[in-house]
Write a protein that binds this DNA or RNA. Structure first.
Lengths: 158, 158
DNA sequence: CTATAGTCTATAGAACAAATAGACTATATT
DNA sequence: AATATAGTCTATTTGTTCTATAGACTATAG
């Protein structure tokens, strides 16, 4: 499960993406609209600034705004920046990789292989989901609820 | 990332799967072979027993053993039992679903859609990975390192 | 120069993860 | 029945991370 921080980061970015190229947005407005605790949001926005996704303007008429095109910001980047590794076990991770202390030979470890492949599938999927894509999907869902073309064919429901 | 507990559960089960139908296995042997803290492992084995995957025999010659066929125990069941929800955000989960407090209308929320689809992809993938499958893959990797047929075509590396 | 709005430092509290200790109970074998 | 073996239960400890908040500080527009 993503941390609240990672989830809030996504909501905040979507909020800014909706107002892309419309000038700075106040922290308190984002907080109110997205129901994010204001002080917590502040720290998230500073991280987003350090990551180079947003910029801020101080003083009256100030606020935050996206400095990358919504099509260039994807869920994989956000998720990894705020939540860390995508892999489910340390030896299946790219960042925060740790060699496995439990198996004798990692090169023939089926657990590693399975979880590494899953990590790759997840990374691919999340990389395709940009803020722009999310806004498009939202519009599409509003026109025709439950009828969007999925990014990838989901399998059977459990 | 899976908790240590979930990871240890997987290692313990694989260990028992290797010795399927060969009588009870001592806790201390599993602990030693898989490098799992013994007392921690005990609590995991009790959970596995409550889940109906293993049984135990007390006294001399006792130990733990699988009571389901290795082909019938899959990673999705283990992961969910020990690590909880597969979805990355609460509104995308099946178990531990929570309606989203952040969007106005969940039925047209693209974030929910995206993360729900990802959850389904993950669930499908993990469901296909049984203990038996892991042992087969291991054998196959040993014969021909790095040449197994993946369960699903992994995408590009990042 | 002053109201506005973002920035920085520090910290509190809760929840959770990981591990350990030790007494207790059941069973096989002699 | 006695005894050693081996799993079971209860409790507690320790440490970390997550989430949130408070308050003083700094930069800027007008």
């Amino acid at each position: 499960m993503l941390s609240k921080k990672a989830q809030y980061a996504i909501y905040a970015l979507i909020n800014l993406a909706r107002k892309y190229n419309q000038g700075p947005v106040l922290i308190k407005n984002i907080a109110k609209e997205e129901k994010i605790p204001r002080k917590f949001l502040e720290s998230i926005l500073i991280e987003l600034k350090n990551l180079g996704l947003v910029n801020s303007k101080k003083g009256k008429g100030g606020g935050y705004y996206l400095i990358q095109h919504p099509g260039d910001i994807n869920m994989m980047f956000i998720t990894r920046s705020f939540n860390g590794a995508l892999g489910l076990i340390p030896c299946a991770c790219i960042i925060s990789y740790e060699s496995c202390a439990h198996c004798k030979d990692e090169s023939v470890c089926s657990i590693k292989k399975v979880f590494r492949d899953l990590r790759d599938i997840t990374a691919d999927y999340l990389e395709k989901v940009s803020l722009e894509k999310l806004l498009e999907m939202e519009a599409s869902l509003k026109r025709n609820p439950g009828r969007t073309i999925p990014l990838q064919e989901p399998g059977s429901q459990e």
